[in-house]
Design a protein around this nucleic acid. Structure first.
Lengths: 135, 135
DNA sequence: CTAATAACAGTAATCGTTACTATTATTCAA
DNA sequence: TTGAATAATAGTAACGATTACTGTTATTAG
């Protein structure tokens, strides 16, 4: 059904060996120098392929390009509207969200999917009095 | 600073007198028949203006056009990934989210903004065994 | 009434993403 | 090992949502 390709492997590697949450554009520019023939279509096609296979998570950020996460463990994200940083929510924070999801389901009958969840607000650094402390 | 315009008033009215969550395109097509000169730029400019003024809420849905909500009371939303419906979360469900936001802040120091929140998952109708029950 | 300017309509441009097409690479069975 | 079948590619064109630009119209304040 699906065939091996060097490009797909490189694209996956670029995500798994990376703690940030790259955009398709970042992946493209990251791999382009060593692979001058790489095309943007290939990057998008493979990212979507990997998302479908569950190897990669897609994170939607309003008004910006989608971000992709190659971390295997289930976790959620928080985005600061002020400084734009995307923060991983693991451990206790992740548990808190899962607890909420259960209570929310029992109350409303709505089965929310915590995977791919991106909460939005203001991070600790940006909540301080001093403005501009979050370049 | 800002001047009155008939178009802005109409656009606001189209949202407040409406329980669904229209897109810019919907607003445009809704008003166009009675206002043949209306332009899309005017719709977007005014929607963004109203959002900045806090009279209207913008709801981002991954991969789709933004939706706008003219309901005055603070509430959140749930989107079913299967049938696409956008459900208002008020009363108990809204309280549950606000409770969660407080606990989450205390735990992580992250100040999430419940306004504009769109949780994603599967609605009750789509969670049933029978497939296709949610046209 | 008039000058200043916010808002407009119409159109072009932008951005992220997907679709198309001809070519290349992988696979699997003879 | 060869070769047909076809997945995946590179390159480019198209797409949809949104914003930016430009010359004109409408509102406002003196």
């Amino acid at each position: 059904m699906s065939k091996y390709s060097r490009q797909r492997e490189m694209i996956l590697d670029a995500l798994t060996g990376n703690r940030c949450h790259p955009t398709a554009d970042w992946v493209y520019n990251h791999l382009k120098p060593d692979n001058p023939a790489l095309s943007m279509g290939t990057v998008y096609r493979n990212l979507n392929f990997l998302v479908e296979r569950g190897l990669v998570r897609k994170l939607s950020v309003p008004g910006e390009a989608d971000r992709f996460d190659g971390q295997a463990d289930t976790h959620m994200h928080f985005r600061c509207r002020q400084c734009g940083s995307l923060i991983d929510l693991k451990g206790e924070a992740a548990e808190e969200i899962l607890d909420f999801a259960r209570r929310f389901r029992d109350l409303t009958g709505l089965e929310m999917d915590p995977a791919g969840l991106v909460l939005e607000g203001r991070c600790e650094a940006c909540s301080g009095d001093s403005p501009g402390n979050c370049s």
